[in-house]
Write a protein that binds this DNA or RNA. Structure first.
Length: 445
DNA sequence: GGAACTCGCCAC
DNA sequence: AAACGTGGCGAGTTCC
């Protein structure tokens, strides 16, 4: 990890400076629209020259003390929240300027400014810490390489377009596929989960989408069906593995349903759910309530743990009981977590830690090989289950072979407790291209 | 003037 | 009965 930090990546200082300036102009424009709006004028009236669009404190007092809006949710300390979810739900139209200002400020202040601050002569050297995280995962800082925007296209492009490989080289990403689910299966050995992992014709997230949204058919080439599969994965399956419950799940799932493209038969999922009385719609097609859908998700949850993954459920109970007796938990990779932990922590730590150790072992092995074989290519970073390499193009095919061999063969062979196949996805950016657009690498088998 | 705290948001 | 795991970090605010 230290060597990866030492290797570092290039950043384009000139482009960072330009982008910061451009963002500042856009932020100012949006701020002016805010101050010209009724909300902004009220804000000015109360706070005068101290008015600050970045002040949650000021915003909170205006929205909830002055305008008496109902709080959607509260923060950890009980104050009304003023996060995106809250603002987006307000009837007040002027907050859209505030949302835009926040998003642009995040990119400028958290990412571009930190890259500008941390770079030395056009190079950044993110730290990768192995001694800080409770679960024996890693963390990253100065700059944090673990949270660079990826999902939001605008933020992703703004930040990643300033990060470059060495001249004449290209970025490669080698990402373990579903590593936490696979490592969890090594602990609980649930037969249903093992067959999902072992049989590539099956698909857990598809099955959960069908059950949660009561679909008659599933067409993986249909954007609507894909959207609901994504919803099942990110709004139910993963949160359930982390210890969430059906109430939160239903809220997220109904949002996926609300924003879903047409299904393969041309129908709309919201209409289907309405026909089945799972949601109540008004004449405009807006959701009045989804109480029955929530009850349905509760039933799916009961089936998920009680029937589908019963052995996984039993493992959770036994593992937690064992912690309560011993006061510590042992990871399959040989580490021990002790101290006061709640149930969700006890269930999550062993999976999170050991999953990261799959990357750590592979990273070390690949590093050793790269030194022995005197590669021009280098390991430059890591994001929990994703290795980032700076590749000299003539070495590309060789490196792909080595990375595949280490991650999918040597690493599982090193640990007899790995009873599932391990797979990685390799993605590649163009030569001299920044860390923006990576395409799946096509291998000749 | 800096430490500590709060809130929010980015990643996996 | 209760209810999402792990981080880093920016900005504002409060306290010393």
């Amino acid at each position: 990890m230290a060597e990866a930090s030492h290797n570092g990546m290039r950043v384009d200082e000139g482009v960072i400076t330009t982008k910061i300036a451009e963002l500042t102009v856009r932020i100012d424009e949006r701020s002016n629209l805010l101050w010209a709006s009724p909300l902004g004028k009220l804000w000015r009236k109360i706070y005068g020259d101290k008015s600050n669009a970045n002040s949650d404190h000021q915003l909170r007092s205006i929205l909830f003390d002055k305008l008496h809006y109902d709080a959607v949710k509260t923060t950890e300390t009980g104050a009304p929240a003023v996060d995106y979810e809250t603002l987006a739900a307000l009837p007040d139209n002027d907050v859209k300027h505030l949302i835009a200002v926040s998003k642009l400020s995040k990119v400028r202040d958290t990412y571009l400014k930190s890259l500008a601050r941390e770079q030395v002569n056009g190079w950044i050297h993110p730290n990768f810490n192995l001694h800080l995280v409770t679960t024996f995962r890693s963390s990253s800082d100065h700059p944090n390489f673990h949270n660079i925007p990826k999902r939001d296209a605008q933020s992703r492009n703004l930040v990643r377009s300033v990060i470059f490989p060495r001249e004449g080289h290209q970025f490669m990403s080698a990402d373990f596929s579903g590593i936490e689910v696979r490592i969890a299966a090594c602990y609980h050995q649930d037969p249903t989960m093992l067959s999902y992992i072992n049989d590539p014709t099956t698909d857990m997230h598809r099955d959960m989408a069908i059950q949660l949204f009561d679909l008659k058919a599933f067409d993986k080439s249909c954007s609507g069906d894909k959207h609901l599969r994504q919803g099942a994965k990110n709004g139910f399956v993963f949160p359930q593995f982390y210890g969430d419950y059906y109430g939160n799940n239903a809220k997220i799932l109904i949002e996926y349903a609300r924003t879903c493209p047409d299904l393969s038969d041309g129908s709309k999922i919201l209409d289907q759910l309405s026909d089945k009385k799972l949601v109540k719609l008004n004449n405009d097609g807006k959701i009045v309530n989804y109480n029955n859908f929530t009850d349905h998700v509760r039933d799916v949850e009961a089936h998920f743990w009680g029937k589908r993954f019963q052995v996984y459920q039993e493992w959770k109970e036994e593992f937690y009981a064992k912690y309560q007796k011993n006061g510590y938990i042992d990871l399959l990779t040989g580490f021990r977590c002790s101290g006061v932990m709640n149930r969700n922590e006890v269930i999550n730590y062993p999976v999170q830690g050991s999953a990261f150790h799959c990357l750590l072992w592979s990273f070390n092995k690949i590093f050793a090989i790269s030194k022995r074989q005197e590669w021009d290519s280098r390991l430059v970073g890591q994001i929990h289950d994703d290795m980032i390499l700076d590749v000299e193009p003539s070495e590309l095919e060789h490196i792909v072979r080595i990375v595949r061999k280490v991650t999918c063969k040597l690493m599982p062979a090193n640990w007899s407790w790995i009873i599932v196949p391990i797979d990685i996805e390799i993605e590649l950016a163009g030569v001299d291209d920044p860390w923006v657009k990576l395409d799946k690498y096509k291998e000749d088998e």
